[in-house]
Design a protein around this nucleic acid. Structure first.
Length: 944
DNA sequence: TCGACGCGC
DNA sequence: TGGGATGCGCGTCGAT
């Protein structure tokens, strides 16, 4: 089978290498094509599209040639700074920064290259041209053939026997003859000519007043540049002679700048550049995500690059089948523990070669904002994973009989090796809950990217169906139960920090996490495009971990002294109330026990018991106690007051003081991206999304959230965002008009319902309309509304009836949404986020009713959450673009809290409002304005 | 570990 | 028929 090699060298079949000048491709594609943006989110993708078309065309043409290439790579410039800047600081100095629209496309182009199954080559400190030179020389010297796909004249110096250039735009092959045509000299003298003429684009100085014609004439006359400069005094023309003598050093420097070095190190061995067909699943996922429909179709027709006949009888061994993972059994004992630099370098090299690596960080604490690094695990292929322990040590006081060998790579050295890999734009990093790893590593100076998050991919695919923790995803998707953290670190009080876990045990656990993450990625990622959710993931999820990691690391400042003082005040008043309660009850009892309260009130004191709870106990909740207090009983009021203080003290004052980090003096919450069904965030450890605001006592706690001296807190919140979205989604003319005209929406609702003018409306009337407006969003019933407003149930029922008559669109929205949910099992937000609501298919009537209400609420709540995410994603860039140092600290569903120097307050308010109000654009044109109110103050209460 | 309760949007 | 009857979270406490 296979082709018979026609020519061979001593080393085997003859190598035919194609080297594509990727950077050149990108710029040509960008400038040659009209701007193109991805429809769903406006991401500029014109250059990516052009690039993909060029690559595809090249792949197809290559296959049809008689001498098809055996090896292929796309070569990129790695960074602006190269060794040439050290030679000459003005090198390429006048080059303008790449167009704004092009910048986000650089990483995408690398991704595109990999999607086409083509290796990417780049090396820090070198230009693409240097790498091209190195590979070209190597292959030429071993007797192979090289084709450089570029039209860059700087590469013409490499042309020679068995080295050609190919200008795909002009479809012209450039050999020695064409070079002579262009430069007037043979390729080996091109450098000398360029050194004399210089290059205004790259800012290579050369010699003033000398162009190609003169330069080539001189070189041809004297043979080469060194001879020319040595014999410059012999030149007849006085001006030319003086120039060459005066600028000799500058000319030699110019030659260094233009000369390409064959000894540039090779980032990948030649073997890894062997031509390989793209993985159709990966390629089509990418093209779908980019929304390159035409090319996706062509690629589909062309059988994924196998344009040649060979493809027919050599079926691909395995294409990714999302439905059936079909992974091999996971063997946790097969993982490597990396404890020296050569081993680490080998793993890093493998990650580069694969272009994708799953990783996980192990730390010694829970909070990512303060935890220390214990180790990093990497997985480069399913089953091929390692753990790099970095901070493991013997637990104090627990020395074993024989001290274990804890030799590890010093942290700083490992960080220095891992940083380039984790930051390399051409290597995709995969993590489970990337926010955590981003936060930890950023404190060690590593800005990880680009990164995919398996937790978020799962969340986009299956929110509402299950949780998205790794253990759960592994069981569901891979049918594998990973080692539980508890089983290696212990549980409860005996739980030890991961740094005290032995290396072999730690390796099994940690490397497995990376392995499982990579397998999950392979299993889940293709589904995004397949199920039309790639844009949701890219625009609403993928950028969030970085944004939230920064917010969590920033943390919020609280006035600890003030909180302790409040805690004492609350404690004292609670003691007084407790004594009074015991006196009234005639015996001591635990005021914190609903059970005991029930006994005291209903059994001993004989008060009329109202409702019972689900478990049959007496209900003693606030509304119950309020009723009893209203009947004139004394004890329920005492209990209500005690409960309020107990809540404030236990949940807020004490807990917040305890949550202050010793290291930063601030409170670092953890935001969860994947714990709600609707797309909202949640906050925990501590929860900073439920800081009191309703009561005066509660606001004292909010007032303890303060800014650093010289700074202010700024709170910016969406006004009525859910009602506005209801007006838009339900297409309710009166509501839309009211919002457009900036009217008081609740007063307008009341006026419409009760037929009374807004002018001089009683506040109670407005209050009722407000309760109805909110109730509607949540799918309220007459019973609930009656409870809420303290009115008879039939009256509440009449309100709801009137409401639906006045706003028939809302009824229609509800019916249509329930219908959709029941038939499909899910609903969508206006940005396309899918919210699964399995309860609508339940056998239980009650559960189905729950499902209906959730279905009605989800598009509204979820769309609001999406709008907020879009605002948060754009915010850091918008602040930075204005030169502001303000930081986002907190999000509370419809509110963002910033901390900024006082002098920036006005500008931050302006930017925050602008970004938030326009956050839906350009993806969705909302038919009512989004309005944001923002204020600055020294504390959160006054800013809100 | 669960339920009741209560804080937020 | 009639019971149950506002969406989404998290943390604390007592009871088990």
């Amino acid at each position: 089978m296979g082709e018979i090699p026609r020519e061979t060298t001593q080393d085997g079949p003859k190598v035919r290498l194609y080297l594509v000048d990727g950077s050149g491709f990108i710029f040509r594609a960008f400038h040659a094509l009209p701007p193109l943006t991805r429809k769903t989110d406006g991401l500029p993708v014109g250059a990516v599209s052009g690039f993909c078309n060029m690559i595809w065309k090249l792949l197809v043409e290559m296959k049809t040639q008689a001498d098809a290439p055996t090896h292929l790579a796309v070569v990129f410039d790695h960074s602006e700074q190269t060794f040439r800047n050290k030679l000459y600081d003005q090198y390429k100095a006048h080059r303008p920064p790449p167009p704004e629209d092009l910048v986000p496309q650089f990483p995408l182009v690398r991704e595109a290259t990999k999607a086409f199954g083509v290796p990417c080559l780049e090396l820090p400190g070198y230009e693409a041209d240097d790498l091209i030179a190195a590979y070209a020389c190597k292959v030429r010297d071993m007797g192979g053939e090289v084709t450089i796909v570029s039209s860059d004249k700087d590469l013409m110096q490499l042309v020679g026997p068995r080295v050609f250039m190919l200008d795909t735009m002009k479809n012209a092959r450039i050999g020695i003859e064409q070079v002579i045509e262009k430069f007037g000299v043979t390729p080996d003298k091109v450098v000398d000519v360029q050194a004399l003429c210089g290059d205004s684009v790259d800012n290579v100085p050369g010699a003033p007043g000398i162009g190609i014609k003169t330069a080539s004439a001189l070189i041809n006359e004297y043979g080469d540049l060194d001879t020319l400069l040595a014999r410059a005094t012999e030149i007849k023309q006085p001006k030319r002679r003086d120039t060459l003598i005066e600028y000799a050093d500058q000319i030699r420097l110019s030659r260094e700048l233009v000369r390409l070095d064959c000894d540039t190190p090779l980032p990948s061995p030649l073997d890894e550049l062997a031509v390989d067909d793209p993985d159709p699943a990966v390629l089509s996922e990418f093209l779908e995500r980019m929304e390159f429909r035409t090319l996706a179709r062509r690629v589909g027709d062309g059988k994924a690059g196998s344009a040649g006949q060979a493809a027919a009888d050599t079926p691909r061994p395995e294409t990714r089948a999302p439905e059936k993972p079909n992974h091999g059994k996971i063997d946790v004992t097969a993982y490597a523990c990396v404890r020296d630099l050569p081993a680490l370098d080998a793993w890093i090299a493998k990650a580069y070669a694969r272009g994708i690596v799953a990783f996980d960080t192990e730390t010694d604490a829970l909070s990512s904002a303060t935890a220390g690094l214990c180790g990093v695990s990497l997985a480069v292929a399913p089953g091929e994973a390692c753990y790099i322990p970095l901070g493991h040590c013997e637990a104090e006081g627990l020395q074993l009989e024989a001290a274990a060998d804890l030799t590890q790579i010093p942290l700083e050295q490992a960080i220095a090796r891992l940083k380039p890999l984790l930051e390399d734009p051409s290597v995709l990093k995969v993590a489970q809950n990337a926010k955590y790893d981003i936060a930890v590593l950023s404190r060690y100076g590593i800005e990880v990217g680009p990164i995919d998050d398996t937790m978020l991919i799962s969340y986009v695919l299956e929110a509402g169906l299950h949780n998205h923790g790794m253990d759960e995803l592994s069981k569901l998707g891979l049918d594998h139960e990973p080692i539980a953290f508890k089983s290696v670190a212990g549980t409860g009080k005996a739980q030890k920090s991961f740094k005290y876990v032995g290396l072999s045990e730690a390796t099994c656990y940690a490397a497995e996490d990376a392995d499982v993450t990579l397998r999950l990625w392979e299993h889940l990622k293709p589904r995004l495009a397949h199920e039309g959710l790639a844009t949701v993931y890219e625009t609403l999820e993928r950028p969030m971990p970085k944004v939230l990691a920064d917010m969590e690391c920033a943390g919020a400042k609280v006035d600890a002294e003030r909180l302790r003082q409040l805690s004492n005040e609350f404690g004292q008043r609670m003691a007084e109330l407790e004594a009074e309660a015991h006196r009234l009850a005639g015996r001591p009892f635990n005021l914190g026990s609903p059970k005991q309260i029930g006994e005291v009130l209903f059994k001993e004191m004989g008060l009329a018991s109202g409702r019972v709870t689900a478990t049959g106990a007496f209900s003693t909740d606030a509304s119950m106690l309020e009723d009893l207090a209203a009947q004139g009983h004394e004890l329920p009021r005492i209990l209500l007051d005690w409960r309020q203080l107990s809540k404030l003290k236990g949940t807020y004052t004490d807990a917040l003081v305890a949550a202050i980090s010793e290291q930063t003096g601030r409170v670092h919450t953890s935001f969860s991206l994947a714990s709600t069904t609707t797309g909202r965030l949640s906050s925990s450890d501590p929860n900073l999304m439920n800081i009191p605001i309703r009561t005066e006592e509660g606001r004292k706690i909010r007032r303890a959230f303060v800014a650093e001296p010289g700074k202010v807190l700024i709170s910016a919140d969406y006004s009525q965002i859910e009602l506005r979205l209801l007006a838009h989604i339900g297409d309710i003319p009166q509501l839309k008009r009211a919002f457009r005209e900036g009217l008081d929406i609740h007063a307008m609702t009341a006026s419409e319902m009760f037929g009374v003018p807004v002018e001089g409306m009683p506040s109670e009337t407005r209050r009722r309309a407000k309760a109805i407006n909110f109730g509607i969003i949540y799918g309220i019933s007459a019973f609930g509304l009656a409870n809420q407003l303290g009115i008879p149930q039939d009256e509440a029922g009449a309100y709801i009836k009137t409401y639906f008559e006045r706003f028939p669109g809302i009824r229609a929205y509800m019916d249509r949404t329930k219908q959709a949910a029941r038939s499909q099992g899910f609903v969508h937000t206006i940005f396309g986020r899918k919210v699964n609501i399995p309860a609508v298919k339940s056998k239980s009537q009650a559960e189905r009713a729950f499902g209906d209400r959730a279905a009605i609420n989800a598009p509204i709540q979820g769309s609001a959450a999406d709008v907020m995410r879009r605002a948060m994603i754009r915010m850091p860039g918008a602040l930075k673009a204005e030169g502001l140092t303000a930081r986002m600290l907190l999000q509370v569903h419809d509110e963002l809290v910033f901390e900024a120097p006082e002098a920036e307050a006005e500008a931050v308010i302006r930017i925050a409002k602008a970004v938030m109000e326009k956050a839906a654009e350009p993806a969705v044109a909302i038919s009512v304005p989004l309005v944001v109110e923002a204020r600055a103050a020294p504390n959160w209460d006054d800013a809100h």
